Amino acid sequence: MDHCKDFSNGQLINFLTEKRFRPLRHAFFLTGFFFLLYGGDVFQEFPAPAAYYVLTIIYCTFIGMFYLNMYVLVPVFLFRTRYLLYILFLLLLVYTGIQILGYFHANYFDAHRLHELNRRKYSESYYAIIIICASLISVSTTVKLLQRWIMDKERITELKNLTYSMELNELKNQVSPHFLFNMLNNVKALIRTNPEMASIVIMKLSEFLRYQLYENNGEKTLLASEIDFLLNFLNLEKIRKDNLQIIFENPINQTLQNTTFIPLGLFTVFVENAIKYSVNTNEEATYIKIDLKVENNMLHFNCINSKSIDIPVFNNKKGGLGLANIKRRLELLYNNEHKLNITSSANEYTVNLIIPL
């Protein structure tokens, strides 16, 4: 029931504000107002030929006031915050309309009335004119204000979406240079110790760049593609570090992986940090454990890496560029519908991210 009511209200607002309904709006108003006057007591006070003239004069006067307020006074004065001038010209418009009707009343209407007006009838006629003027002005002003409000609301929404899109793209584009910078440092170190292995790493790196530049230009990517990307990334590190143990748990079925889309590069920064801080200065074995699973239409990403007490992990309040960017991206993408928990103990660094699918 509430849904039907909201739908009806939405249709009414669209009818009153959208440009495509403008001819229909005017036709509806002009016809409705004409029949409103036609159903009055004009034909009881005037003979048939004169009644039509009286009806036409009253109709044209009120319609003129209605459209002068809607298309001249409101846009020129009210919308430009010239409130005093708007009130003055509005009073002048009402005064002019009453004077026009008063002129015809004295010089034409009274001469053709079937019955002479007494004082009470004259007062009632005068107050009726005031009420109609106030009603028409209120309707015309309300419609223009509603149209203006809808237009401003649409502009604000469009501006927010544009700002959101620009900020999101900027943050996403900052991740790729950050990732490339880390990889080039890895290659530089490997060239000195194992040039042949460095060549393999460079080939793998070219596959990464091809993936990011040509195969994944959209806002989202398949979950399967992102998983392959992470596995290739980790395998590169495994090639470079013999003492690095990688455990990647992924019980998500292949069909779901190939039909689920997630924002590009959400996990890359966390994996980069895991690789960066899993280094052990004593050349002892290190590890990175990644677990992906889907529960209740939520994707759970858990990354645990060993860390050396000799290498301090950065302060979360300050953070690195990549981590700060990914936190901001998550806020923009999910609007607090996600959960990100980062903890650090003496020997491990843990990232737990939950996002809706």
Rank of each mutant, 00 (worst) to 15 (best):
11 Q>N: 06
237 E>Q: 06
343 T>I: 05
127 Y>R: 08
283 E>I: 12
20 R>C: 03
200 I>W: 01
196 E>M: 02
100 I>Q: 06
229 F>L: 05
211 Y>P: 00
76 V>N: 03
218 G>D: 08
251 P>A: 09
288 I>L: 12
356 P>K: 06
180 L>Y: 03
8 S>V: 14
242 D>H: 14
71 Y>P: 03
125 S>L: 14
180 L>E: 05
151 M>W: 11
136 L>T: 10
345 S>R: 01
226 E>Q: 02
31 T>Q: 04
252 I>D: 11
223 L>W: 01
184 L>C: 00
239 I>T: 03
298 M>Q: 15
338 H>E: 04
1 M>I: 09
168 L>V: 06
132 I>S: 11
292 L>K: 12
213 L>N: 07
240 R>P: 00
42 V>A: 10
102 G>Y: 04
230 L>K: 05
200 I>D: 05
10 G>C: 07
216 N>K: 04
120 R>L: 13
208 F>V: 03
244 L>H: 04
337 E>Q: 10
307 K>A: 05
209 L>W: 05
144 K>A: 13
306 S>D: 10
214 Y>G: 00
215 E>T: 01
42 V>M: 10
204 K>T: 06
178 H>F: 12
102 G>N: 13
71 Y>K: 04
95 Y>T: 13
177 P>G: 03
101 L>M: 13
155 R>A: 12
344 S>A: 06
295 E>P: 05
41 D>I: 11
75 P>K: 09
295 E>Q: 15
329 R>C: 09
281 T>E: 11
289 K>S: 11
45 E>I: 10
199 S>P: 00
180 L>T: 00
43 F>R: 13
7 F>V: 14
286 T>H: 08
52 Y>N: 07
259 T>K: 06
246 I>T: 03
76 V>Q: 05
49 P>R: 13
157 T>H: 08
299 L>H: 05
127 Y>C: 07
48 A>I: 15
221 T>F: 00
11 Q>L: 13
258 N>Q: 14
196 E>R: 08
313 V>D: 11
46 F>V: 04
113 R>N: 00
193 T>W: 00
257 Q>F: 07
252 I>W: 08
104 F>S: 07
140 S>F: 09
175 V>S: 01
73 L>K: 04
287 Y>N: 07
268 T>K: 12
336 N>H: 05
236 L>T: 02
253 N>Q: 10
38 Y>L: 12
341 N>A: 03
291 D>R: 15
258 N>A: 02
330 L>Y: 02
222 L>R: 03
353 L>C: 05
335 N>K: 15
58 I>Y: 11
158 E>A: 14
153 K>Q: 11
285 A>G: 01
283 E>H: 15
4 C>S: 08
247 I>M: 03
17 T>F: 00
333 L>C: 07
292 L>C: 06
235 N>Y: 08
68 L>W: 10
261 F>L: 15
262 I>L: 12
107 N>D: 10
138 S>V: 11
122 Y>T: 13
244 L>F: 06
117 L>G: 06
50 A>W: 13
150 I>P: 01
10 G>F: 07
328 R>I: 09
319 G>Q: 04
247 I>Y: 06
